[in-house]
Amino acid sequence: MSYPGPASGPPQPERPRRLRRGPLTVALAALVPGALLGWVVYEAVGSSGGDSGQAAVRPATGSPSASGESPLTSPSGREGREGHEDRKGQDDKKPGASAGPASTASAPAASGPLRGKVVVIDPGHNPGNFQHTAEINRKVDIGTHSKECDTTGTSTNAGYTEARFTLDLAHRLRALLEAQGATVKLTHDAGSPSWGPCVDERARIGNAAHADAAVSLHADGSAPGNRGFHVILPAAVHAGAADTRPIAAASRDLGERIAGNFVRVTGEAPSNYLGGGTGLVTRKDLGGLNLSTVPKVFVECGNMRDSTDAALLTSGAWRQKAAEGISEGIVGFLRGS
């Protein structure tokens, strides 16, 4: 999803008519450039708060005015996920090489409790994956085995895609964390790269950034009636290029804090079909977790195929709450409180 800027600039002043050069004319000629300059500055500053198309966020304050985004029809509808536990193993979700710039980084804030901390946000999938099926189906090594570079992700029955959801949520989460002083990097952003990155590259971006915490954002595609969120934690994997043993405990701490705050802020219940009501699931088949050397979790914010969950996921106000819940979990983890 792209986030275009304003469609048009400020109106241009009309060209003044030719006047006789008298004393008053000369005085006016001297004043007009200054007035125009002041007008331009006013327009640049006063208009900067307009909606650029990105999720407008006011750090730590309420919800945006927009109630949701218009649906983007998925060319393939349900993308052929596997069922329940095994299905999300395909979502990471699929490993492979990078298809573009490594990351999108924010400038560190001048102050705040998270100054000096680095957070990597990984918006699951990419809106362009539908047009690059050959690339995302290429196999990559995730340590324990090989699997596809990525998948298209799922969507609501009305066509609102997981990839659009995760990008919007990532922008909201980034704004909240930057307001706390953190340096935030995204594994990809709107239109760059045009597909992917593959899941092995997503893990490497967090590793290269020496992230203090990394969070991959998703929404599930399970059967109707399956509701709620869950946080996926890395198992203690040691195989091939994968060794999550050094990060397993810290990742669990991060995941538990996110789950607790997600419930409190959003009111969304833990998954009724995974995790035994805890909202926590441990996995060893996701490349984005297996190859991470920094504390990392996946957050499945709800089930897009359930109409009740879909109504939440497509609401801008609810997505703001989701960003706040995840942010507060990350802040608690990084501050140890």
Rank of each mutant, 00 (worst) to 15 (best):
D51Q: 08
E300L: 04
A110H: 05
N207G: 15
S98Y: 02
G128Y: 01
P16M: 06
N129E: 01
T104F: 12
N126A: 12
G240I: 02
S76W: 01
T282C: 02
S76A: 12
G50D: 10
V263R: 09
A110W: 01
E324Y: 05
P10A: 15
F262E: 10
H145C: 13
A134G: 12
R20P: 11
A29L: 13
C149G: 14
Q131A: 15
I247W: 02
A219R: 02
A158W: 00
P23H: 08
Q180V: 02
H238D: 15
A323S: 14
P127F: 03
D243E: 08
H218Q: 14
P108L: 11
N137D: 15
A175P: 03
E85H: 13
D168I: 04
E85P: 12
R335Q: 14
S146Q: 11
N261M: 10
I142A: 10
R58M: 10
P4F: 10
P197H: 09
E135S: 12
A310D: 05
H125R: 05
V294C: 00
I142M: 09
A30M: 13
S2D: 12
F333C: 13
K93S: 15
I232D: 00
V120D: 07
A322K: 01
V26D: 10
A250L: 09
G196C: 14
G5C: 10
D189R: 05
E162S: 08
E69K: 12
S307Q: 09
A213K: 04
P123F: 01
D200A: 15
V45N: 06
A175M: 05
R245D: 03
N207M: 11
L72Y: 03
D141A: 07
D220Q: 03
S251G: 14
K147N: 14
L186F: 02
G255S: 14
A107H: 08
R115P: 08
S2K: 03
A242F: 08
T244I: 02
S70C: 07
Q12Y: 06
K139D: 14
R115I: 09
G38H: 08
K185Q: 14
G336I: 08
T244F: 00
V40K: 00
V57R: 06
R20F: 13
I258P: 02
V297D: 00
P13G: 09
T144C: 06
L24N: 05
P71M: 04
A269L: 09
S155E: 05
P295I: 00
A7R: 03
K139P: 04
T61Q: 13
L254F: 09
V45D: 09
G196V: 09
L289A: 00
I330H: 00
G128P: 07
D253V: 12
V32K: 01
E162I: 07
G255A: 11
V231T: 11
A110M: 04
V120E: 03
R202S: 10
G124D: 04
G53R: 06
R204S: 15
G153K: 04
T61S: 15
E300N: 05
R115F: 06
K93M: 14
